[in-house]
Structures are given as structure tokens and as C-alpha cells.
Design a binder for these strands. Structure first.
Lengths: 108, 108
DNA sequence: CCATCTTGGACTAATTTTGTACAAAGCTAA
DNA sequence: TTAGCTTTGTACAAAATTAGTCCAAGATGG
């Protein structure tokens, strides 16, 4: 039986992998994106959050799906909050119900 | 067959219900909690977020579970973000996986 | 050693959030 | 109508958070 290997990864880790696969330095990517090297380093280590604009540019630059990066970004944020607040896991279920509820309520 | 009535409600709505059930005015509850009337009004209408401290005091004052209010608070936030970003619903599943992952990884 | 990459800290600037004050609008009862 | 209450809305100041830069210091590899 193959081990069920799920890769749980943060946005920062993912960006670092993308950069390393492209064999580029922080400086190179940072200047491409238009930010300071040390800011990119922090983003990769999840010490700073990427902005929407930066995520978009990363997606463009590395030719990956922006939607996927945003998903990573948001799920990071949510997970972080959950742990920080020591919230019940089903808080996320409640959130899901709310999203569905508001989507049907104010549908479009 | 009974209708499966799930009440999806925001923290603000819940606080308003609690206050109205207690037949108190905004002014009365606000002064009890130590904030301005108009701030409480905004919190009830979800135009402002309650702080942790305020949530704790509300729970104490209305004699309800703080944990439950926090759950409402966080799920509101998450749902709001999800809708704002037009994120895929499974973003929340990913978040759940991350929480579980980090909990086992840095267990305690 | 030098050159380049990465990390970390200190700091400022910009943005967001919190909270208040007060005016306006709604209700209700006299 | 007026008086007295509640609630809403706006404008603003204060406080807190976050974004970003600069630069020094470690690491690594020639």
C-alpha cells in the first residue's frame, strides 16, 4: 500500500520551491516583482504576508495559477487564526455554511 | 418531515438578539461593556468588529459561552474573506488540513 | 580573501482599526 | 405638537498594525 502522502504547504514554502526550481536568487525574483530582497525572504518564511498584487505578480512570473496561490494564502491565514485562537475545528464548517448561505441569499 | 432549519447568524445578529431578549437598550449594554453606544450599534450591525475583550465581556454579561461567540466571530470573518476574495469553497478544507497538520506537528 | 546569497533587526511610512462625539432620524406617548 | 427616549450615520482623532526599506551580519563557495 502506498503511503498516503499529502503535502501540506504554506504559500511561503510554495514560493520558495518555485524560485528554487527556477534556480533564481531572492534578489532576482524580488527585483522582478519590484520589492526588496529582504521582504521577499520574509514572505517566503511567512514572516510577512504577500499582498494581493504581489501574489498576482508571482503567479504571472512563475506561470502558475493565481487562484491556487490565493487559496494557499487564505488557507494559511485561516489556519493561523484558528491555532492562535485555539478555536474549535468546526468553526471552519460554520464558515462554510455561512458562505453557502450568503451566496444563495445574495446570489449572483 | 420536519424542515431542517439551520440558523446561520452573524455575531452581530446574535448579540442583538441577546440584548433584545434581555430587553435592554444599546446604551445600557454599551455602558455595561464600557464602550460607546454607537460602537455597540455598529458591532451589532457588523460594521465594526468586536475585540476579544469585548466578546469576553459580552459572554460574561449575557451569560453565554465565550467560546461560542468566538466561533461565531471567526466564522464570520472567514466567510467574509471567502466571499470578498471569491475563493474556492475548498479553501476551507485546505485550512482544516493545515490546522490538523500543524497540531500534530507541533503537538501539545 | 572576495563575491554572492540569505537572514535579522531596527526603523519609518502607510494603512487600517478602534473609538468617540455629536447630529439626525425614528418611535412612542402625552 | 412636543418631549424623551432609542438607534443610526458621519466625521474625526488616536492607536495599532502592517508594509517596506536599509543595512549589518552570517553562510557558502570559489
Amino acid at each position: 500500500m502506498a503511503t498516503n502522502k499529502i503535502s501540506v504547504t504554506t504559500l511561503g514554502e510554495k514560493l520558495r520551491v518555485l524560485r528554487e526550481e527556477a534556480e533564481l536568487s531572492l534578489r532576482e525574483v524580488a527585483s522582478e516583482i519590484g520589492i526588496d530582497t529582504s521582504l521577499l525572504a520574509k514572505i517566503e518564511r511567512n514572516e510577512r504576508q504577500a499582498t494581493k498584487e504581489q501574489i498576482k505578480q508571482m503567479a504571472l512570473f512563475f506561470k502558475v495559477s493565481e487562484r491556487q496561490l490565493v487559496k494557499e494564502f487564505l488557507s494559511d491565514q485561516f489556519a493561523y487564526k484558528m491555532i492562535e485562537e485555539e478555536a474549535d475545528l468546526d468553526t471552519l464548517k460554520v464558515a462554510e455554511a455561512k458562505v453557502e448561505y450568503y451566496k444563495t441569499k445574495y446570489k449572483k
